[in-house]
Every structure is written in C-alpha cells, then in structure tokens.
Computed example of a mutant assay.
Amino acid sequence: MFGGRPLITAAKGVLGHTTGAAGAIEAALTVLAITQGTVPPIANFRRAEHDWGLQLVSGRPRPHRTRLALSNSVGFGRQNAVLVFRPF
C-alpha cells in the first residue's frame, strides 16, 4: 500500500499534551507536510536503540513527495482516530 517502507515522524515531542486538540493538530501537520513535500523530524530523537528496519526521520526535515500519509492519534479513554490523506 505504501510502496516500500514509509517515513515515520511524530509530533508529540513538540505538541505535548494538547488533549482534545491533538488529533486535529496532527491532521493539520500531516496535510502541511504533504503540501510542502517534506517530512519533519521527530523532536529530540537521535537514533533508535534497536534496528527494526523503520525509517524514523531525525535531525532535519526530509524532502519527500508523499503519495499517501497516515495520521494516527491515540488519546486518553480510548479516543483513537486514524486518518489517511493523499495529495490531490
């Protein structure tokens, strides 16, 4: 579906606990990443302890033409949502 190993990023380290707004903010950041053609790095992340073959974005934003992006929001009290975005 993704055509290879997808790039992985996370906004939690920058956003903190925004409770009810977290999902909306992450969705907006996902759309922004698609429109700008770049994947932002995970804040304060240098390298993984284990090599699981994941493409975790660290250090600097990575240019990437996204065909499909997944925004996964997991909240307190089982308030979970997964949104899939693609460019027009």
Rank of each mutant, 00 (worst) to 15 (best):
E49A: 15
P63K: 11
P6G: 12
I34H: 04
A11N: 10
A28Y: 06
T19C: 06
T38G: 03
F45T: 02
L32H: 05
I42G: 01
E49I: 05
Q55T: 04
P40A: 07
V57W: 04
L7D: 00
G77P: 09
Q79V: 08
G37N: 03
P61V: 06
Q55M: 11
A10L: 04
S73D: 06
T19G: 05
Q79P: 01
G37H: 05
T38Y: 03
R46M: 09
A27F: 14
R62H: 12
G59V: 09
A24W: 03
T66D: 05
R47F: 14
A33D: 02
R62A: 08
T9F: 12
V74S: 14
S71N: 13
L29H: 00
L70R: 01
G3A: 09
V14Y: 06
L15R: 01
A81F: 07
W52I: 07
F88M: 13
L7T: 00
A33E: 00
A27W: 04
V82W: 06
A10F: 05
A24D: 09
E26Q: 13
A69E: 03
V84F: 14
P6C: 15
G59Y: 04
R78N: 14
G16F: 09
G16Y: 07
G59F: 06
D51F: 14
T19W: 13
A81Y: 05
L15H: 00
L83R: 02
L56D: 00
G23T: 07
V74K: 15
